[in-house]
C-alpha cells in the first residue's frame, strides 16, 4: 500500500491548496466590489475637472499653459506604469508590461529616450530588471488609493515636463471593462489633447474667465489637479482590475484543484481495489494449495 499512502498525501496537499485558492477567491470578490465602488466614486470628479479643462481650452486666455502646447520634436518621454503590488492575478501585469515592451521598442527605434515612473511593485521590478531609467516609484498603495500619495510621483513628471526634460508624458494601466475583461491601455497625458465637448457651439463665442488672483497660478493649479485626477483614476481602475483578475484566476485554480483531486481519488481507489483483489486471490490460492 506504499503507492496508496503517497497518493493520499498528494490528495491532502492539493486539498490544502484548494482551500487557500478558494479563500483568496472570496477575499478578492469582496475587495473587488469595494474597489469598483471606489472607482465609480472617483468618476464625478474626473468628469467635472475634464469639463472645466474643456471650458478652459475654449476660453480665450491671454495665458497659454505649457501643458496645452504640443512640442515639435520629441526626444525624451515620460512613462507612468501602473501595476499591482502583488501577483497571483492572472495575466494582468504581464499584459500591461507586454504593451510597455512594444511601446519601448518603438521609441527605441525612433531614438526616443524614456524616463519611467513606476507605481506598483510588479512594474517596478520589471523596469529595474530591464535597466530602464526609473526616476520615481511608489509601492504599497494597498486597496484604497489615496490621491495624497500619488502627488509625489506625478509632480516629478510634471516638473520634468515643465523644465523640458521630457516632451510628452504617457500612462499605462489596465482599464476596467468588466469583471472578466481588463484591457491594458496606453494613453497620453501631456501635452493635453483637445477635449471634445458636448456644448461646443455655446463655448465658441468670445469669452474668458475672471481669474482670481491671476490667470497663471489658477490655471497651473487646475491643470496639475487634472493630471493628478487622471492618474488617480488610472490607479483606482487598476486596483479594481487587479481584484477581479485575481478573483477569476483563483476561481480557475480552485476548479482545477477540484479536477486534480477527482483524478487522484480515482487512481487511489483503483490501486486500493487492485490490492484487495490481489490479496483475495492469494488467500484463495493458498487455501486451494492446502
Amino acid at each position: 500500500m506504499a503507492a496508496g499512502k503517497e497518493i493520499r498525501t498528494q490528495i491532502k496537499s492539493v486539498e490544502n491548496t484548494r482551500k487557500i485558492t478558494k479563500a483568496m477567491e472570496m477575499v478578492a470578490a469582496s475587495k473587488m466590489r469595494r474597489a469598483q465602488e471606489r472607482m465609480k466614486a472617483a468618476r464625478p470628479y474626473a468628469e467635472k475637472i475634464a469639463n472645466v479643462a474643456t471650458h478652459l481650452a475654449y476660453a480665450h486666455t491671454e495665458y497659454k499653459h505649457p501643458f496645452v502646447i504640443a512640442r515639435e520634436n520629441v526626444r525624451r518621454v515620460g512613462l507612468v506604469i501602473v501595476t499591482s503590488d502583488k501577483g497571483l492575478c492572472g495575466g494582468l501585469n504581464t499584459n500591461a508590461l507586454r504593451l510597455v515592451m512594444t511601446q519601448l521598442k518603438q521609441w527605441n527605434a525612433a531614438g526616443v529616450e524614456v524616463d519611467v515612473s513606476a507605481i506598483g511593485n510588479k512594474g517596478l521590478g520589471f523596469m529595474q530588471r530591464l535597466g530602464a531609467n526609473v526616476v520615481s516609484q511608489l509601492t504599497g498603495i494597498g486597496d484604497t488609493p489615496r490621491l495624497e500619495t500619488l502627488i509625489g510621483p506625478v509632480k516629478i513628471m510634471l516638473d520634468a515636463y515643465m523644465e523640458g526634460r521630457i516632451d510628452a508624458l504617457f500612462i499605462v494601466y489596465n482599464r476596467f471593462v468588466n469583471t472578466m475583461k481588463q484591457e491594458p491601455t496606453l494613453t497620453q497625458l501631456l501635452p493635453l489633447a483637445k477635449l471634445a465637448s458636448e456644448d461646443e457651439a455655446s463655448l465658441k463665442t468670445h469669452w474668458d474667465y475672471i481669474y482670481e488672483p491671476d490667470a497663471q497660478p489658477v490655471v497651473d493649479a487646475m491643470l496639475k489637479r487634472y493630471i493628478e485626477s487622471l492618474v488617480y483614476q488610472a490607479v483606482a481602475e487598476n486596483i479594481a482590475c487587479e481584484q477581479s483578475a485575481r478573483m477569476v484566476a483563483m476561481k480557475a485554480a480552485s476548479d482545477n484543484a477540484k479536477n486534480v483531486i477527482g483524478e487522484l481519488k480515482l487512481i487511489y481507489n483503483k490501486t486500493r481495489q487492485a490490492a484487495i483483489t490481489k490479496e483475495l486471490s492469494e488467500i484463495v490460492a493458498g487455501a486451494a494449495a492446502v
Binding site: K48, N51, V52, S136, R146, E148, K155
Partner: peptide, 26 residues
C-alpha cells in the same frame, strides 16, 4: 458652479516634499 475640492492637505512645500519622497525611494 463647480467646486473641485482637494482631499489632501496641499501647499507647494508639501507637494515638493511628496515628490522628493517618491524620488528618494527611487
Amino acid at each position: 458652479v463647480t467646486i473641485l475640492s482637494d482631499t489632501a492637505i496641499r501647499g507647494n512645500d508639501l507637494d515638493e516634499a511628496k515628490a522628493l519622497e517618491a524620488k528618494r525611494a527611487a
